[in-house]
Design a protein around this nucleic acid. Structure first.
Length: 585
RNA sequence: GCCCACGUAGCUCAGUCGGAUAGAGCGGGGACCUCCUAAGUCCUAGGCCGUCGGUUCGAUUCCGGCCGUGGGCGCCA
């Protein structure tokens, strides 16, 4: 009765039901596969909807088909009740021993029922991408946090993940930045940058560039030296990059993301590759001259006059453009790294640009199925006024300030709600809660949409928030502390599903693997967020209605085991979102 | 002008491959702590799923038109 998948027993009852039904539906469809369409239901544990679609296809009565499903013996081991309803829906109630055996399996599994993917891939994920000598802002928050979660989910399913942080470490602005660095003197500049005062450094350089023609000239000369590989200039450039990286790393550390120096893959890395890529475009006969520039015309793109829209490979002045750099990047990822899948966690405004890049790569034969490049786009962070979030001065908000404020606000809330927590413990928890709240708030809405930033809702301890999820986890840990029982000691204890809240919680726990694959299916972390919230919510109902420690054995142990398993899934799923699960808060 | 995304309760958002009565949180009204953290739970009110058509047994979901909002549309990245 038990389907196996990649060495793992399939522990999602819905998926198991689907597997058991497939032969029956196939048979009713004259031997061709037909989807049984099994879904969770609010009228039963699950509903089978496939009879309706199939009935239309084979010209049968849907209720008759449904009846023949309920009369077959295939589901006797898993279902305690099958009922045809309405035009041909089948309501399913899972049998208690079936659910209990699945639960025992999951409790005994370090992976909590999550099987590795069957088609393991090499996945390159491009995310974060701050600019050297500039502040990180809210836009980088989204890319960094979404990318980090996708990395964790992909790795969890066994894919080989290569993180790439495509930092802005090359280009024309570096002429003025290096000249400004020289003006300041290295000591001043390095201490300023190490404090994260990148904003003023960049702005000062920019202001000088705007005001002084001599400075402009110096900057231009410096760009020529930089691109020519002048040693002294490269040393200065390197210094700027290193100082910025140290700053980025401090932000990543506070944010708790996986990025390290090993993941750096800045624009500068692709400079030496662009000439070769350009030659290959030429050899393939894809280049045309237009108004002095060398361009490629990807199919299906038009400009505002309705004429074909070119992707510029080399400018009129003979310089390579960012599009060429992105082409080199794809080539490198496919040919050197062996990428099967490339994810670009980049804001929605770049959609058109990336489509053109991917299209040119396909045309040039560098991006051929099944190799795939996907733009994982995301919307803006908006302020309370519904417009792009800005500081009071009208600038973009510094990410570092945002993180600090999140932690401060969390600490204040914890001090108020749980004054008994020791101060050093409180500081640790405040970081987990503040950063977790910020990440959850960002991850929990559909990434493609803009979202409205709101401290009060983010850090509220009620509703679909990070703190609420963490609280559910902390409560479970607290139960075990109070009873002085090792969590691991209850993992072999059979779980009995008696009360409706226990049953609902069990069904949710068993749906965990499906929640991950669904979330990753569209690179949408918010789907996993929804799952974790529902899990925490189901636990809270259970906790309210089903006393744990006050119950008599064997109920007490069974509930402890259920609580332990819930805490494990909570911690694991929060982990996939990059959110910590404190044991106390 | 063309292209892309979005439009769901007062507010903020979910809604799986087309399924039965469209869900949650906040806010509103009410109930529950001598009891494992009330940072919680339960009940309740609140909807023309932007709009008009199409596809079909069935559309918030798929297709087309329109309206609204945001973004993009060649030598910055």
């Amino acid at each position: 009765m038990l389907a196996r998948h990649n060495g793992h027993r399939m522990t999602d009852p819905i998926a198991t039901l689907t597997k058991l039904l497939e032969p029956i539906f196939s048979e009713m469809n004259g031997g061709d596969p037909a989807d049984p369409v099994v879904r969770p239901s609010d009228r039963a544990d699950a509903q089978i909807n496939g009879a309706l679609a199939l009935a239309k296809k084979v010209g049968a009565n849907p209720r008759d088909l449904a009846e023949s499903v309920t009369e077959s013996a295939a589901l006797t081991d898993v279902a305690s009740s099958l009922e045809v309803a309405g035009p041909g829906f089948i309501n399913v109630e899972f049998s208690q021993p079936f659910l209990e055996s699945l639960l025992a399996e999951v409790a005994n599994d370090d992976r909590l029922g999550v099987a590795a993917a069957t088609d393991l891939k090499t996945v390159v994920i491009d995310y974060s991408a701050p600019n050297v000598a500039k502040e990180m802002h809210v836009g980088h928050l989204r890319s960094t946090v979404i990318g980090d979660s996708l990395v964790r989910m992909m790795e969890c399913l066994g894919h080989q993940v290569i993180r790439e942080n495509h930092i802005g470490d090359w280009g024309r602005p570096f002429g003025m930045l290096i000249e400004h660095l020289l003006d300041l003197g290295e000591d001043v500049a390095s201490s300023g940058l190490s404090q994260g005062d990148l904003d003023s450094f960049y702005k000062e350089a920019n202001a000088k560039f705007a005001e002084s023609e001599t400075f402009q000239e110096r900057a231009r000369q410096r760009v020529v030296l930089l691109q020519g590989g002048d040693e002294e200039t490269l040393v200065l450039w390197r210094r700027l990059v290193d100082m910025s990286n140290a700053y980025f790393n401090s932000v990543y550390s506070t944010l708790g993301v996986l990025l390290t120096d090993d993941d750096l893959a800045g624009e500068s890395r692709y400079q030496p590759l662009m000439e070769g890529v350009y030659q290959r475009l030429d050899d393939a006969g894809l280049l045309s001259e237009d108004d002095g520039a060398m361009v490629v015309y990807p199919d299906g793109f038009k400009n505002r006059d309705g004429d074909p829209l070119p992707m510029i490979a080399k400018s009129r002045t003979g310089a390579f453009m960012y599009a060429t750099s992105d082409l080199a990047c794809v080539v490198d990822r496919v040919e050197r790294l062996g990428a099967d899948l490339m994810l670009y966690v980049v804001g929605s405004p770049q959609a058109n640009h990336l489509e053109m890049v991917f299209s040119v790569c396909a045309k040039a034969g560098w991006l051929v199925e099944p190799t795939e490049a996907v733009h994982v786009g995301f919307g803006n962070v908006l302020g309370a006024d519904g417009k792009m979030m800005r500081s009071r001065a009208g600038d973009s908000v510094k990410l570092a300030d945002l993180l600090d404020e999140a932690i401060e606000r969390a600490e204040a809330a914890i001090a108020e709600k749980n004054p008994e927590l020791a101060a050093d413990q409180r500081a640790k928890v405040a970081e987990m809660v503040g950063i977790g709240a910020l990440k959850y708030f960002d991850l929990s809405t559909d990434r493609i949409k803009d979202y409205q930033f709101d401290w009060d809702r983010m850090l509220a301890f009620e509703g679909s928030t990070g703190p609420y999820l963490q609280y559910a986890h902390a409560r479970i840990c607290s139960v075990f502390r109070r009873a002085d029982i090792e969590r691991a000691s209850v993992r072999q204890v059979p779980i009995a599903l008696i009360e409706p809240q226990e049953r609902a919680l069990a069904l949710r726990l068993l749906a965990y693997p499906t929640a991950i694959t669904a979330s990753l299916g569209t690179y949408a972390p918010h789907k996993l967020c929804t799952y974790v919230y529902e899990l925490a919510s189901d636990f809270s109902s259970f906790y309210q209605e089903c006393p744990i420690l006050k119950s008599k054995e064997p109920v007490r142990s069974s509930r402890l085991a259920l609580a332990d398993l819930t805490a494990r899934v909570l911690a694991h799923s929060l982990g996939l979102l990059g959110i910590a699960a404190p044991e106390e808060m």
